[in-house]
């Protein structure tokens, strides 16, 4: 199994109730899983735990047979090699598109960096936007740049936190098909969090429903 999560539990320091409990998930390489749930169901917290921005109370997270978090080990987020597309994209406002994309490629030599940037810009069809600043882009364009930025360092796992919530309804339908295509083309294992059933249906190979911190697998698409 490429991703193995066992018995994950979490609660925020000032809260008694668990935000997440008894969470299990296994994923094949290249699989796209949707986590579907209402706001407050713990799905965003789940992503923050997987990528290492929160420390779980208990449980094991393994990616590509490497332990990211268990009883004794905790790998810092910057060392996990996980990509994340944030809900509001978090594009760095003081950098242009190109600098945003190469931000995660600092270890590569300059030439390869440029090649990789062109590659992902090609993938999202936005080569001409290199020099633009985030505030000069539409919501849909920002979202694609955020995706490209996360894909550029070739993460082992891609996490997407409600990537459509800031888009108009028309745009949303067009973009989610595009998104599935891009992710499948890149062949990257992804977990995608949403509150929208349609989104989940359109993108995912498999859907997981979350309620009050507990997850229920859906054997068929809803």
């Amino acid at each position: 199994m490429f991703v193995e999560i066992k018995d994950l539990a979490f609660h925020y320091p000032n809260q008694k109730d668990f935000t997440l409990a008894k969470f299990f998930l296994t994923m094949e390489k290249g699989e796209i899983v949707s986590v579907l749930g209402a706001s407050g169901s713990g799905k965003s917290t789940l992503l923050r735990i997987i990528c290492g921005l929160e420390v779980p109370y208990s449980g094991v997270i393994k990616i590509n047979n490497e332990v990211m978090s268990d009883e004794s080990r905790f790998v810092l987020p910057e060392k996990r090699g996980i990509g994340m597309v944030f809900q509001d994209y978090a594009l760095f406002p003081h950098m242009n598109v190109y600098d945003n994309i190469i931000f995660g490629l600092k270890k590569l030599p300059r030439k390869e960096r440029k090649e990789r940037a062109d590659e992902v810009l090609e993938l999202i069809n936005m080569v001409d936007f290199k020099k633009r600043y985030p505030y000069e882009l539409s919501g849909g364009q920002q979202q694609r740049i955020a995706l490209a930025r996360a894909l550029a360092p070739q993460p082992s796992l891609l996490l997407l936190d409600e990537p459509f919530s800031n888009l108009d309804a028309d745009l949303q339908i067009k973009i989610r098909e595009e998104l599935r295509e891009i992710i499948k083309k890149a062949g990257i294992t992804s977990i995608f969090v949403t509150h929208d059933r349609e989104d989940a249906n359109a993108i995912a190979d498999r859907i997981l429903r979350m309620e009050h911190g507990f997850a229920y697998p859906c054997t068929v698409k809803i």
Binding site: P77, E78, K79, G83, F86, G104
Partner: peptide, 13 residues
């Protein structure tokens, strides 16, 4: 914290 977190997800400490 979102920019900081985005940066950390891209491999910066």
């Amino acid at each position: 914290t979102k920019y900081n977190e985005a940066s950390r997800m891209l491999g910066m400490n």
